[in-house]
Design a binder for these strands. Structure first.
Lengths: 115, 115
DNA sequence: CGGGAATATTCCAGTCAAGGAATATTATTG
DNA sequence: CAATAATATTCCTTGACTGGAATATTCCCG
C-alpha cells in the first residue's frame, strides 16, 4: 500500500473535502465555503490531494473545478482485501465465545485473554 | 470516517507493522527485527497503533505480544462503501470512451476533458 | 488596457511527529 | 537479591505540517 494516499486522507479537512467531492465536482470557492475554510487553506489542501492523485483539476475560465479520482480509493480497497479473511475469523471467535458463555455461565469479561 | 486510524496507518513503519501482523501476533522484538528498527522506535510506533485501536497487547511474562484488531480496518472498508458507486460510473465512462474512439478515429488523448 | 473575481503562492510562526540515545521498568532465573 | 532479557519512557533535536496574512497570478469583461 501507498503511504501518500493515506497521508493525504489523514488530515481532517482533506478527508472532509473527499467526502464533499463524493457528490460531484466542486469549485475551490464552494469547497472553502462549505467547510468554513479560507480560500488559501482550501487551495493548499487541494494541492496536496491533487498531488496524491485523489483529485483532478479542470480549469474553466476563472475557476478550477476539482473532481474526485477513484483510483487511490480503489487501491485502499484492494489492500483491505488481504485482511478480510481476518474479519471472518473474528466472527468465528465471537460465536465460540458465545458458546463458551452459554456453557460455563461466567460473567462476560472484556479483558479476556485472546488466543 | 475517523482520522486517527488513517493517521496511524499513514506512517510507513506502522503500515509495515500492520502488514506484518496480518499473518499473526508478534513480539516487539520480532517486529523490530523484521523491520530493521531499534526497539524503542518499535515500541513507540506500537503504542500509537495501540491507542488507535489497530492493535491490542497481551503480556506474556517478559514479552508483549501485539495482535491486529480488525475493527478499524472494517471501519475503513465501510467508509469506502459510499464510494464504490463511483468506480462503476468510471467503468461506464471508460466503455463510453472506447466507443467514442471507435467511432471518431481520434488519436487517444490522455489529457481529455472530463465531464 | 484597467478593474475585479477566483485561485495559487509565498512568508512566517507555532506546533507536532519521528529518530537517536540514554534510562527506567518489569519479569525471569539462579 | 543480583544479573539479565524484553520492553517502555524520557529528553533532545530536527524536519515537516498547518494556519494566517499578504501578495502574485490568471482570466474575464467593459
Amino acid at each position: 500500500m501507498n503511504t501518500t494516499t493515506l497521508n493525504a486522507l489523514a488530515e481532517p479537512r482533506r478527508l472532509q473535502m473527499i467526502e464533499l467531492l463524493r457528490d460531484g465536482p466542486l469549485t475551490v470557492g464552494e469547497i472553502a465555503d462549505r467547510l468554513g475554510l479560507r480560500q488559501p487553506q482550501a487551495s493548499k489542501h487541494l494541492k496536496i490531494l491533487s498531488e496524491s492523485g485523489l483529485v483532478e483539476v479542470r480549469a474553466e475560465a476563472n475557476r478550477r473545478i476539482y473532481r474526485l479520482r477513484p483510483e487511490p480509493l480503489m487501491e485502499i480497497d484492494n489492500w483491505l482485501e488481504s485482511f478480510r479473511g481476518m474479519w471472518e475469523e473474528r466472527f468465528d471467535r465471537l460465536s465460540d465465545y458465545l458458546k463458551h458463555l452459554k456453557k460455563s455461565g461466567d460473567s462476560p469479561n472484556s479483558k479476556e485473554e485472546f488466543e
